[in-house]
Amino acid sequence: MAETGLTHARDMGVRRFGRFNWLGLWTLIRRETLRFLVVWTQTLLAPLVTAGLFMMIFSIAIGPQRGDVMGVSFLHFIAPGILTMTVIQNAFANTSSSIVVSKVQGNIVDTLMPPLSAGELVTGYVVGGVVRGLLVALAIAAVLFPIVGVGVAHPLWALVFVVLGAAFLGALGLVAGIVAQKFDQIAAITNFIVMPLSFLSGTFYSIEALPPVINTLSHWNPVFYIIDGVRFGVLGVSDSAPEKGLVVTLAATAAVGGLAWYWFRTGWRLKS
């Protein structure tokens, strides 16, 4: 009898649902998706309105007077950039806010205690950010692109870079959320890191117009390749080869995701 009880005690720590906890992962993805869907006016409608305002302002202030950029009209040129900028900012906000809110409210333990590995936690959070980014992209493409008269030259390339961009910023949001201990810290990361990365990555201009030094620095920015890749997918023109952008974006996403995985595994700033 005593031996049976000892055996059960040993079995308590044994993983009983295979190599991957699919049910737990799906539950986390569902939670992260419902988090932004219940406030869709803030998370989906507001980004659409913001993107529309950007397009309208540039159309009124610059569009008619500005010549072609890379063989397309300026308004068409900035449309994919604005879409991508909005997507990555929302993906970052989804993951970073989820972690910070849980830490501030003291319920991060509800996420860490279930039988989910560090890889499953990172995957669940990032997928939630990707879903939000995709929905924002679909809303902008469905509503604003027909108004502006923009088509999609290479749909598969556009989809790949939108997903990768959302995944990269979603993983970066996890890193930022783990580092930050309160809301003003995550706001500082957003204002001083995420916003400059997105605005200074060719969203509103071709980097070929930049001075040589700044042009070289831009090629070290993964967000440049994300925006440039989406622009190639939508317009068929780009500053760099999409294949190179794909490799850089995959490497950057893997690096940031790996850091988030390591911190989830060790519990740094999460369990203390």
Rank of each mutant, 00 (worst) to 15 (best):
M1A: 13
A2K: 14
G5E: 15
H8F: 14
A9F: 11
A9S: 13
R10L: 14
D11I: 10
G13A: 12
G13Q: 07
R15C: 04
R19A: 13
L23H: 12
W26F: 13
I29N: 00
R31F: 12
T33Y: 03
T33V: 14
V39L: 12
L44M: 05
L45V: 12
T50M: 12
A51I: 04
G52L: 01
G52T: 02
R66G: 01
D68G: 04
H76T: 10
F77A: 01
M85C: 08
T86D: 00
I88S: 01
V100S: 01
V104L: 06
Q105N: 14
I108Y: 03
V109D: 15
L112H: 06
L116C: 01
G119Y: 05
V122W: 03
V127P: 00
V127F: 03
G128Y: 01
V130T: 06
G133Y: 00
L135K: 01
L138I: 13
L138Y: 04
A139F: 10
A139M: 12
A141R: 00
A142K: 03
A142Y: 09
P146V: 06
G149Q: 08
H154N: 08
P155Y: 12
F161V: 09
F161H: 07
A167Y: 02
G170F: 04
G177L: 11
A187P: 06
A188K: 07
I189T: 05
L197R: 09
F199G: 06
L200Y: 14
T203V: 14
F204N: 04
S206Y: 11
E208H: 15
W220H: 12
P222Q: 11
P222D: 06
G229L: 09
V230G: 01
G233P: 04
L235W: 03
L235P: 03
G236F: 10
V237M: 09
D239F: 05
V248T: 02
L250S: 03
L250T: 10
A252K: 01
A255H: 06
V256L: 12
G258D: 07
L259S: 09
A260M: 08
A260R: 02
W263K: 11
F264K: 03
T266N: 12
